[in-house]
Simulated assay, not measured.
Amino acid sequence: MATPLDEMLAAVHRTGGSVTVEIDRLYPTTAPDLWSACTEPDRLARWFARVTGDLRPGGEFTIHFDDDDTPACTLTDCTPPESFVWRWPVGGHDTTVTVEVAADPGGARLRLCHEGLPEGPAAGYAAGWDTYVRRLEADLSHDDAADGDALPDWDATWGALHPLYRAALASA
Rank of each mutant, 00 (worst) to 15 (best):
A2M: 14
T3R: 00
L5R: 02
E7N: 04
L9S: 02
V12P: 11
H13V: 14
G16Q: 05
G17W: 10
S18L: 14
V19R: 03
T20E: 01
E22S: 12
E22P: 05
I23M: 11
D24Y: 08
R25I: 09
L26W: 03
P28T: 07
T30D: 03
T30L: 05
P32D: 11
P32K: 06
D33C: 03
L34R: 03
L34S: 02
W35I: 12
W35E: 07
C38W: 08
T39D: 13
T39V: 15
E40Y: 12
P41R: 05
L44A: 15
L44W: 15
L44G: 13
W47G: 13
A49H: 09
T52Q: 07
G53C: 09
L55P: 08
L55D: 06
P57V: 02
E60L: 06
T62G: 03
H64M: 12
D67H: 10
D69R: 15
T70W: 10
L75Q: 00
P80A: 05
P81Q: 01
R87D: 02
W88P: 00
G92L: 08
G92P: 11
G92E: 08
H93S: 11
T96G: 00
V97Y: 01
T98H: 07
E100A: 11
V101T: 03
D104Q: 01
G106K: 15
G106A: 15
A108V: 12
A108D: 07
R109K: 05
R109A: 09
R109W: 10
L112H: 13
L112I: 14
C113K: 14
C113M: 12
H114G: 07
E115M: 02
G116T: 14
L117S: 04
P118V: 09
G120V: 15
P121N: 07
P121Y: 12
A122V: 14
A123H: 15
G124M: 13
Y125V: 12
Y125I: 12
Y125H: 14
A126Q: 13
A127R: 04
A127I: 07
T131P: 05
L136P: 01
L136N: 01
L136I: 05
L136Y: 04
E137Q: 12
A138K: 02
A138N: 03
L140R: 01
D143E: 13
D144H: 12
D149H: 12
D149M: 15
D149P: 03
P152L: 06
P152E: 04
D153S: 10
D153R: 10
A156P: 09
T157A: 09
T157P: 08
A160H: 02
A160D: 08
L164I: 05
R166D: 13
L169K: 04
L169A: 02
L169T: 04
A170C: 13
S171D: 12
S171E: 15
